[in-house]
Amino acid sequence: MWLRISAIVMRYFFLHRRSVARVMEIFFWPVMNLLVWGFVTYYLKELALPKTVLFLLGSVILWDVLYRSQQGITLAITEEFWVKNIINIFISPISMGELLTAICIVGIIKSLVTTVVLGFLALFFYKFSLLEIGPGLVLFLGNLLLFGWGVGLFTMALIFRYGRAAEALIWGVPFLIQPVSAVFYPVTVLPVWLQKIAYLLPSTYVFEGMRQVLATGVTDISILGISFGLNLVYLLLGALYFNWMLRRVREMGYLSRLHLE
């Protein structure tokens, strides 16, 4: 099992090690995001809103973890369609569980690298230390990774079913989640009906929790627990939906046509 998982991890290592564009892609967008939001928040600080600086910088960095983990799953498999390699993968003895495990390992590595780089840049440019979030930081990051994977499974299932027509979802779905997850503002800013939806998303608890830690220095483990519980539900539903869709696309013959689109 680990040999097959390591094969996929190795495939992505090979892919990245000679491609400056791909390595830059891990850093470029997050760094640009951090710089834009960082300077905006500096301006807000001048308006005497010092905590806002912390909130927004923390949000920018944590949001990137969610965004990247969802993309990790969807882009990794979609790339195999693009290079017409998907059939070679699917007719090898690797199981879907092993393939997804490998993709998640690659996703964790990429997210860690990006978070560390952003953490250093935030410290250098804005004197903001991610470590201010405290030991709970690992739990915040973990919950966001899990939610990203859950959403990634739903997105991937739709791409298997609808092919390239659904590829826009890879970039679109995170931005559907972003406003409802109260990434850059507290949930209370949202209309009451939308707050109810927001509390159905594990990410909302992470961003609310992060603001609470930065404001008070206290990590509320209970809300992280709720986030984790919701994540388990989303992951289970995502896996069931993904499996069901995979069975359907085998029945409909789409799996063997994806590389031809």
């Binding site: 097959r4 495939r11 892919l15 290079v83 017409k84 390699n85 059939i87 003895p93 590389h259």
Partner: peptide
């Protein structure tokens, strides 16, 4: 198949080593 390919951005060796691991 003439209609499938191996990833173009990996070397011949890299592709074959990845698939050899996939086959155990």
């Amino acid at each position: 198949s003439a209609y499938t390919s191996l990833p173009s951005n990996l070397t011949v060796w890299e592709n074959l080593i990845v698939f050899s691991r996939l086959y155990g």
